[in-house]
Design a protein around this nucleic acid. Structure first.
Lengths: 133, 133
DNA sequence: ATATAAAGGGACCATCAAAGTCCTTTTAGG
DNA sequence: CCTAAAAGGACTTTGATGGTCCCTTTATAT
């Protein structure tokens, strides 16, 4: 359980590639996809999400491509993962009150909350600088 | 991401019910299913897994049913979750070397390992006694 | 011995999200 | 205005999740 999806996996690989490039070097999607061995069309979707959440910048047309939106040390693994996988919610009832019918009496609730906090803490402490080669 | 499946959710509810019963009181599957509001046939599968991993004892025939295999304070949430959901593996490459093509060079690997350790630690610290009402 | 009450187990089905493809549109440069 | 890129929508495929059904085994009670 608690497995990262393939999408998350690809996302991390792709953005680490970006982070490993010389600063301001624009990378083509085709280039990234080939380098990290991910289907280009699928990676495209992933980078669109990156672009929307603002952790990468994209440029269209000739000479276009992708660029990290900030220095690698400012982008955390948490941001990357949550950008494509959504928020980290070990159990449906962790955040959204009301989603858990057993709401008030749920003794397990605080445990999942603790898990969530710990995991987010770990991921928030790792930056792309730590991960880039 | 990192969501518990419904199976895991049901499993926890079911076993907490057991843990909340008087010691040595045998509970029927039908009774548990009704109490925790889970389809009985589905819960049956879950308790079969519990039975296999040895955290509950089952008795067949008239007067049969289920019983916690030990005192609630000896059964951890980790055992319960892993019994039905399998081991906690945030990323495919965490445990099984070789499953990760990028093996040796994978800088993310240690991060997932850390996540795994923390989560297991939290869950291993919670027993059914803590959770039962 | 036989009827009955339970769990065990296998096969099966439905639904939904993950994973991936394809095609058209928009944007920018040469 | 042609070409190179990303953006975006629609679609398909695949597999896991969630769940049902039915038959078998085991045990008890009459």
């Amino acid at each position: 359980m608690m497995e990262l999806t393939r999408k998350g996996d690809y996302a991390i690989r792709g953005i680490i590639y970006l982070a490993s490039q010389p600063p301001n070097k624009i990378s083509l999607l085709s280039e990234i996809a080939a380098a990290v061995d991910v289907p280009q069309t699928f990676l495209a979707k992933i980078f669109q999400q990156f672009s929307k959440t603002g952790i990468v910048k994209s440029f269209r047309g000739t000479g276009g491509g992708f660029l990290l939106a900030g220095p690698p040390e400012d982008i955390t693994l948490l941001q990357v993962v949550e950008a494509v996988e959504g928020p980290i919610l070990p159990n449906r009832c962790v955040l959204k009150a009301g989603e858990c019918e057993r709401d008030v009496t749920c003794t397990v609730h605080p445990v999942w909350h603790q898990v969530q906090q710990k995991v987010r803490g770990i991921l928030a402490n790792i930056t792309l600088k730590d991960l880039a080669t």
